[in-house]
Computed example of a mutant assay.
Amino acid sequence: MNPVPTPPAVHAEQHLTSSAMLQDIVIGFFDELTVPFALAAGLSRAVHSSSLVITAGLAEIVAGSIAMGLGGYPAGRTKVEHYQAELARERREVQEMPAAERRAVQELLAEMSFSPATQALAVRELTADPAQWVKFMMKYELGLEEPDPRQAPKSALTIAGAYAGGGVIIQNAPKIGR
Rank of each mutant, 00 (worst) to 15 (best):
A162S: 14
L109R: 07
H11I: 15
A20I: 09
Q84K: 10
S50V: 12
E107P: 00
Y83D: 07
H11M: 09
V26I: 15
L33C: 12
E145I: 07
A128T: 09
T127G: 05
I169M: 10
R89V: 08
A131F: 02
K139P: 00
L58I: 15
R91M: 08
P149T: 13
T158V: 15
A99C: 00
R103N: 13
A164R: 02
A152N: 07
P7C: 01
G64C: 06
A117C: 00
N172K: 01
T17S: 11
M97H: 13
I170F: 11
V134P: 03
A156S: 14
A128D: 13
I25F: 13
P7E: 14
A67R: 02
V123H: 05
R124E: 15
D148H: 02
V53S: 06
E86I: 03
V47F: 06
I61A: 13
S18G: 09
V35A: 13
S49P: 01
H11T: 14
R150H: 14
R89F: 12
I169C: 07
Y163R: 01
A104N: 08
V4N: 07
A75L: 14
R91H: 11
R89G: 03
E93A: 12
L87E: 12
E90R: 01
I27M: 11
V105K: 02
L43T: 09
I54E: 13
G42I: 10
K139A: 14
E32K: 01
A41P: 00
L22N: 04
S155H: 06
R124H: 10
G177K: 04
R92L: 14
F114N: 06
Y73P: 00
P7H: 09
E141Y: 01
I170C: 05
R178T: 11
I159P: 02
E111A: 12
A160H: 04
P147W: 06
G69A: 05
A63N: 04
V26A: 14
R103E: 15
A38W: 03
I176Q: 02
G165Y: 05
Y83N: 06
D24R: 00
A117S: 12
L22P: 01
Q84W: 00
P147H: 05
L144S: 04
Q84F: 01
H11G: 00
G143W: 07
A162R: 02
M112W: 04
S50T: 13
G143D: 10
F136D: 07
A67G: 14
G72Y: 04
Y83K: 04
E145V: 10
A122K: 01
S50E: 15
L121W: 07
M138F: 04
V168F: 12
E107I: 05
G166V: 05
G177P: 00
R45P: 00
A38D: 02
Q171A: 13
P7T: 09
Y163D: 08
V80Y: 09
E111F: 02
G69T: 07
F37E: 04
S50H: 09
N2F: 08
A41I: 09
E96T: 12
R77L: 14
R102H: 08
Q23V: 11
H82W: 08
T127A: 10
P74E: 11
E13L: 11
L43A: 11
L126C: 06
L16S: 07
V94R: 02
Q171M: 13
E111W: 00
Q119W: 04
L70W: 04
G57F: 06
A20K: 02
G76N: 07
T127M: 05
A173Y: 10
G28Y: 06
L58R: 00
